[in-house]
């Protein structure tokens, strides 16, 4: 599901102007090819809408309920609320659990066997069971999203705190700190970078799973909107939905990165 590759923090900001131009040029070329393919008839307009039409639909969907029954804003709000609810409840439990598992052998022994079995199950494989348990309403989807965000947040926090420099733990102990104090003041901050990696992976995992869940069971939401686009043979609506999903995901990742910069000032250059 979720990609495990994460850009190193800070690398995204490029001061180099020519690199910015390169990015802009790449986008322009992308749109020209898209435009060309559709306008030249290589790809039928019934299958792929031209960029201008997508833009028109995008703007009109702000106020227009047709053809899928709700405005873009309403779909967006439904999806975002669902994703954030599942995400936040998942990481609030997952990150501390991972940290505790990585620090205390007892917690590790208790949780690990169960976790190791749950971890390889893709979140969407839970959909049938979730529908059986909760019906097709919000709880089923929230449950699946919770699971999808939970797993990466546990794994990364766990791995992160395991990497704490032994010399720093020893330093803390020779000063007379208790194990709990050392956990809080040495283990947790040293794991913070990996915890954040987990938070980012959890977020993208939650967002992707949300769309999958909505494709299957929803009456509103971005995934539902895409699905309706297919039913109504409206590629423009599908693409608007997809773009909204993509842009939102990118925006959330960006916000999280800024937040990390605030919380971890020692890593700023």
């Amino acid at each position: 599901m979720a990609t495990r590759i994460v850009a190193a923090p800070g690398k995204i900001r490029s001061k180099n102007n020519s690199l910015v131009w390169l990015s802009a040029a790449s986008l322009v070329v992308f749109f020209i090819i898209w435009y060309g393919l559709v306008e030249s008839g290589i790809i039928s307009k019934a299958l792929l809408s031209p960029p201008a039409e997508v833009l028109t639909t995008f703007i009109s969907k702000f106020s227009n309920r047709a053809p899928d029954g709700a405005t873009l804003g309403a779909h967006f709000k439904t999806s975002l609320t669902l994703a954030l609810t599942g995400y936040i409840t998942a990481v609030v439990v997952g990150a501390p659990l991972g940290l505790l598992m990585g620090w205390y052998k007892k917690v590790d022994s208790i949780v690990k066997p169960i976790f190791e079995v749950i971890r390889p199950i893709p979140p969407i494989a839970w959909i049938p069971l979730a529908i059986l348990w909760f019906g097709i309403g919000l709880p089923a989807k929230a449950f699946i999203i919770w699971l999808s965000a939970f797993v990466p947040s546990v794994i990364n926090s766990y791995a992160g705190i395991k990497l704490t420099e032994p010399v720093l733990i020893n330093m803390s102990r020779t000063f007379g700190a208790t194990n709990w104090e050392t956990f809080l003041r040495v283990g947790v901050p040293s794991a913070l970078a990996m915890v954040f990696t987990g938070l980012r992976l959890s977020l993208s995992s939650a967002w992707m799973t949300l769309v999958a869940a909505e494709l299957l069971a929803a009456t509103e939401g971005l995934g539902y909107m895409i699905q309706m686009g297919r039913t109504l043979a409206r590629p423009d609506v599908i693409i608007v939905g997809m773009l909204t999903i993509g842009l939102t995901g990118a925006a959330m990742a960006f916000i999280l990165e800024r937040f990390e910069g605030k919380l971890a000032p020692w890593r700023r250059s």
Binding site: L168, N170, M171, S172, F175, G176, R185, V186, W266
Partner: peptide, 29 residues
């Protein structure tokens, strides 16, 4: 007993905490 005695240990490897400033590092003990 490190919890009772005042012991400081300068380790063979670097042992400042990268997430703390100079002052915060010195405060730790």
């Amino acid at each position: 007993n490190p919890q009772k005695h005042n012991i400081s240990f300068v380790f063979q490897e670097p042992s400042t905490m990268p997430w703390l400033t100079v002052e915060q590092n010195i405060r730790y003990g």
